[in-house]
């Protein structure tokens, strides 16, 4: 049984790692507008991570704040799904990851906004509105690339195929009673939402085969260690430094 603390860490870690990965596009995006858009997406994720991790730290009651949780935990202590730690690949891979995560977060936050746990519901209600823009952004690009030139179609199709096995982990039975939902119940609406976008993009939903798992219990991909090292190095090199 997942406790509320564990769950908050999962929600916070999904958002934190997605923020860090997405921010890698800064100064590398294909055009200025995408640069700005991806930085905004990362900023929204970071804001959500801060709210969830701050709450997790207070609930734990051992004096750990958002910074301690973000910068002083090691790989096996992170509870994020593997989807968010995957490398960015080409722009199509980033679009596919963003679409799959945003569609999930939007459904999840919309439902969490109605739970009886007031602080969780408050953060989720705020975050749901933000994730709606992420869905719209990623949908637009999926359609533009999928229903574009033969080259963009092929690369968008390859990206969807590559990322698909990492989407199942989002719907594993992993939620405390306070969440008031079963993650598996989100899978149907998610497939419907994502399927609609893929259809419009002239892409087909990949076959289900091998599925990634383990992130929620601290087992991560080979790409996660370097990401953490990058994210945590300044904080660990300058212990206790403040702005």
């Amino acid at each position: 049984m997942t406790g509320l603390l564990e769950y908050l860490l999962g929600l916070g870690d999904d958002a934190l790692v997605a923020a860090q990965r997405t921010a890698e596009w800064c100064a590398r995006a294909p055009q200025l507008e995408e640069e700005v858009a991806l930085a905004n997406l990362a900023l929204d994720q970071l804001g959500q991570a801060r709210a969830f991790l701050t709450y997790a730290g207070e609930l734990e009651g051992e004096g750990r704040d958002e910074d301690a949780l973000a910068f002083l935990r090691d790989e096996h202590e992170f509870r994020n799904v593997q989807l968010v730690e995957l490398p960015n690949g080409d722009f199509a891979v980033t679009v596919a990851k963003t679409l799959f995560l945003a569609a999930y977060q939007n459904l999840l936050y919309t439902r969490l906004a109605r739970t009886a746990e007031p602080r969780l519901a408050g953060i989720a209600a705020k975050a749901a509105k933000e994730s709606a823009f992420h869905v719209s952004y990623a949908s637009l690009w999926t359609v533009r690339l999928g229903d574009g030139t033969p080259l963009s179609h092929r690369r968008m199709r390859d990206a969807v195929e590559e990322v698909w096995p990492y989407t199942h982990e989002l719907f594993e039975p992993w939620a405390p009673p306070e969440a008031g939902l079963d993650p598996a119940a989100l899978h149907g609406p998610w497939l419907e939402a994502v399927g609609r976008v893929l259809g419009e993009a002239t892409l087909t939903r990949p076959q289900d085969g091998w599925a990634a798992t383990g992130g929620r219990s601290g087992r991560h991909t080979e790409w996660f260690g370097p990401l953490l090292a990058d994210m945590q190095s300044v904080h660990r090199a300058h212990v206790g430094a403040r702005w």
Binding site: G47, Q48, A127
Partner: peptide
């Protein structure tokens, strides 16, 4: 109340 959670 914040406008956005990540509002810097």
């Amino acid at each position: 109340t914040p406008t956005y959670l990540g509002c810097p």
